[in-house]
Nucleic acid binder design. Structure first.
Lengths: 215, 215
DNA sequence: GTCTATACGGTGATAGAC
DNA sequence: GTCTATCACCGTATAGAC
């Protein structure tokens, strides 16, 4: 059976690396094009120009415009997920500290700013009409909701119903503040949204209020 | 100065009525086209077909595609605003009852369902790239936030800071549930979102818990 | 006021040279 | 792998007949 469709391992690896590099290059360009042009006016031409490559390259690596945009959305979710996971990992084992870390991570300007929010909302605005987006959104958002529920379950081991409610409210409230930040960037600020969310948390969890204080 | 560029009053009125009728006809068609095609693939052609009119009519009454879509967004906000205003008006003078009425109005399937949410999010996804949308959004959302703050101020006359927080949380939490309903229509339901919001309200306002119960 | 026809500029995808 | 050239198509807006 051997005498496989061979090529030296080293060369194969180099090809793979080149492919990954190009994919990254095109994804970054896609992201920049959406930020400046929106999803509507992002075309293979605008992406190619941002990347400093030809249109053909984007098609070669992503098959179609739709494939490219779907991968861009997945990439966005991966970056986001890595960020909040790192944050709760770094917060140690105390559930209150982990919950606070997750909230603060959500409003970190590194992943929550006008540009990135405009990309999120551009995709979400199309989600109903592009089924692929919906599948990606569900997959990743589920991870986050489970993580929040897990933290809350540890925080309130004696009251799973209340833990479930709190988890739902935290998830929903942070989403709501993202929307406020996106729609009214002159009224809301990251720091303000974070403070408001933590204040809500202290009001909802008075017994942990001292451990949910950013100071 | 008279001898104005006249035309008999009756005729002028009839023209105005016809214009209003046509505008409504085209706006409704625009709305239907967005629901079925999304904002990206809504064109003058799809709107004209939905309306059973020619492309020229849409341009005649709304100047351009952009003008048409902006008016459609404004129309959406007016319908929404009328709905929640009617709801709090009908709730009487008790602040807790008014607050609950506002929340319940927000999840009324009449104005909160998969179709309408997809239209809202389609516009919000483009907001950053179409300045006109932002102006309309700010104008109308401000009315709602002021109304909520007003209700909360009546509810907690002795504690304006807390009233302000509660108002902010109600506004943001309902927005967040709209997003959940839009992104995960198989997981969230209108009734569930309403119940969760009211439960949050009772947790945040324990002294009014009995008056914030839907039963 | 309403229509049809059309100008003009993209758009995604493909073919084929290098 | 990467490029350029090219295809068939669709988008808005306008012009002008009725």
């Amino acid at each position: 059976m051997p005498i496989a469709p061979t090529e030296p391992p080293r060369q194969r690896k180099e090809r793979k690396q080149n492919a990954d590099k190009r994919r990254r290059q095109v994804l970054d360009a896609t992201y920049r094009s959406i930020v400046t042009n929106g999803l509507q006016r992002t075309t293979l031409a605008t992406v190619a120009e941002e990347a400093g490559l030809s249109q053909g390259v984007a098609v070669f690596y992503f098959k179609s415009k739709n494939g490219l945009l779907s991968e861009a959305l997945r990439d966005l979710y991966i970056t986001y997920e890595t960020h909040w996971q790192d944050a709760i990992d770094a917060a140690g084992t105390d559930a209150a500290a982990r919950l606070m870390a997750l909230v603060r991570a959500d409003f970190d300007p590194k992943i929550c700013n006008a540009s990135i929010l405009s990309v999120w909302f551009a995709f979400w605005g199309e989600q109903k009409f592009t089924p692929q987006y919906g599948a990606i959104t569900s997959e990743y958002d589920d991870n986050r909701l489970r993580a929040i529920r897990d933290i809350c379950a540890h925080l309130l081991p004696a009251d799973p119903d209340r833990a479930h409610d709190i988890a739902d409210w935290v998830d929903t409230l942070t989403d709501g503040y993202w929307q406020n930040l996106h729609l009214f960037p002159t009224v809301y600020t990251n720091a303000g949204a974070e403070r408001s969310t933590l204040r809500a948390l202290r009001a909802l969890l008075p017994e942990f209020a001292d451990r949910l204080n950013p100071d």
